[in-house]
Amino acid sequence: MGLDFSVVPAFAGALLLGMVWTIAITVSAAVLSFFGGIVFAVIALYSPALIRYPFRLFAWLFMGTPLLLQLFLIYFGLIQIGVDLPAFVAGVIGLGLHFAVYNSDIIQSGILAVDKGQYEGARTLGLSRMQTLRKIIVPQAVRAVIPPIGNNMIALLKDSALVSVIGVAELTLTSQMAISRTFRPFEFYVTAAACYYVINLGLEAGLRRIERRIQLAR
């Protein structure tokens, strides 16, 4: 059985729609993981011990286990305790939480690297603890750690392929549907890989622009 890529164009529309879903899930999960990462970082560093230690345990558990296992837990596990999330929502929550924990780790080191004088200065000027964190510390910390967070976002794009196993009709699952009709796995998976590669190039270019702008703003 030779290769025949001429079967691919017939599914161009479906694959394009799959790409749109891949981008939608990546962007939604990226936004969730970014803000989630900030919240988690603040909890891990500043909350009372009663919250901080259980939270650190949760973070440790999330960083030490595979994303696929977490997706199975969130999607199939929650159904069994009566929470029936749509696959897309479960996928965004799973991906978003997983990368929020990784982002939180990076942002924590960013927060700790902000000069202590900034905190003391803001408190002296009469800002509350919360205001100081929100307006002085976090913006500086986040700006410093944008490049490693960007790397996480690239990993997130590729890991978004995993939500196909819980039934989100993104690029990978769309390719599988096309394969079940044509029995041409090689052609469609290579096409899907090429699509991911193109989205990846776009994402990398976007991240480089953001990094440049942040450097100019400093």
Partner: peptide
């Protein structure tokens, strides 16, 4: 590095 590992396994 530009494509998902899952797709590589499938290919």
């Amino acid at each position: 590095r530009g494509t998902p590992a899952l797709i590589q396994i499938f290919i």
